[in-house]
Design a protein around this nucleic acid. Structure first.
Lengths: 222, 222
DNA sequence: GTCTATATACCGATAGAC
DNA sequence: GTCTATCGGTATATAGAC
């Protein structure tokens, strides 16, 4: 999968391109659009500005997509698809060996958290866009519904872990889930790759704070 | 201070109003505007829609404010003023007695966290607007600069508490601060007053999760 | 596939009557 | 203080040449 932030520059055509002709494919248009939506906001970003950023005209964009809303829909599909895959394969990576014993709810929760951090980092602009939706249009409302279903699935994991006695029960499970993913989701507001913090270090910090808290524990190896 | 969510209905005039005439004052206009900005986004909200929500005309709004940007500026001023006051009086409430010993950095941090939760709850729509800014205009950039200064002040508290040995040192202080306020700020995305969770209970949950973590500790009274 | 030109609609803001 | 009418600007999207 291409990194949308890395190369907003136009890609040269494949074998069927005319000599030296620079063209944009859908992925390049989408990458630039998502970056612009995140910087300025979806509503504040005009098709004219997208054309400027791409060094082309509005009409050229309409050749690739049916309109501004389809750009949004494609971007949200990518973010949601990656997040939903976490729930299908809670190991964090597909194709894992058939596990020994079934993992506990707490173990599954930690894997989902680490997976979510990984997806947020790998698909940063797309997930950023998803997390800032307001639900103004049908496209946005459909995406928000899918996001809510993801949240509910995580909440069920938290409740299960509380029932197991693995998580504290004096904080409501729903509240804990929301605070937990409030912390995870806030990554998109400040994390930037290449800033001296790898995705794994970030996941470690999130899991440590979420499960053990920030307070120094006397005698603990910290 | 009036509650902007509670009464979007027009307020009757004071002593100088003509008999029975319904009018809007600046506070009523601001309350409706902030609610609309949060629901639909600032850019996606037109002055025409504000007029519709107020049951009046666009011109009537322009009588009260110079334009759409001033509505934004007034709302952000209210949110920032309340947050900045937390740093001046870290007791959480003004007029506290001159304290005995100077509180530790950890104690001051907890007071700021509880104060921030209180401000978020009490001024929910205004802080929500602040936290969703993108920095498209001068008004927004000025507000973002003030917000960054607030964040930096909290980060200095965290660093001080780490230096005291009160907070764990295996998580970078900057990262910890960002995760901490990512958790706090996420409240605006889901907390609604009257939902069975008081501001104090919420602050307890935030402080418990931030400092002690979610994991059940064997033998601990939880 | 990309261009220029344009159709159509809505935006923020203002003018002037009442 | 609120109204109707309208200004100038810009938005999305399309038409048709090349």
């Amino acid at each position: 999968m291409s990194d949308p932030d890395a190369a907003p520059a136009p890609a040269r055509r494949g074998g069927n391109g005319r000599a030296g002709r620079v063209a944009y494919d859908l992925d390049a248009v989408l990458a630039v659009a998502v970056q612009a939506f995140n910087e300025r906001g979806y509503d504040a970003t005009s098709m004219g500005e997208l054309a400027e950023r791409l060094g082309t005209s509005k009409s050229a964009i309409y050749y690739h997509v049916s309109g501004k809303q389809e750009l949004l829909r494609l971007a949200l599909e990518r973010a949601l698809g990656n997040l939903e895959a976490l729930l299908q394969e809670p190991d964090g990576q597909p194709g894992g060996a058939p596990d020994a014993a079934a993992p506990s709810a707490l173990e599954r929760l930690e894997r989902v958290i680490r997976g979510a951090v990984r997806v947020l980092v790998q698909e940063l602009p797309f997930v950023t866009l998803l997390l800032r939706l307001r639900g103004n249009t049908d496209v946005e409302r459909e995406a928000l519904a899918r996001r809510r279903e993801f949240d509910h699935a995580v909440a069920r994991l938290v409740e299960e872990a509380v029932a197991d006695g693995a998580l504290r029960s004096d904080v409501d499970a729903r509240t804990a889930t929301r605070l937990l993913f409030g912390m995870v989701n806030s990554l998109v507001e400040w994390y930037r790759p290449g800033g001296g913090l790898t995705a794994d270090q970030l996941a470690d910090a999130v899991v440590a704070m979420a499960f053990e808290g920030l307070r120094a524990q006397p005698g603990a190896r910290r």
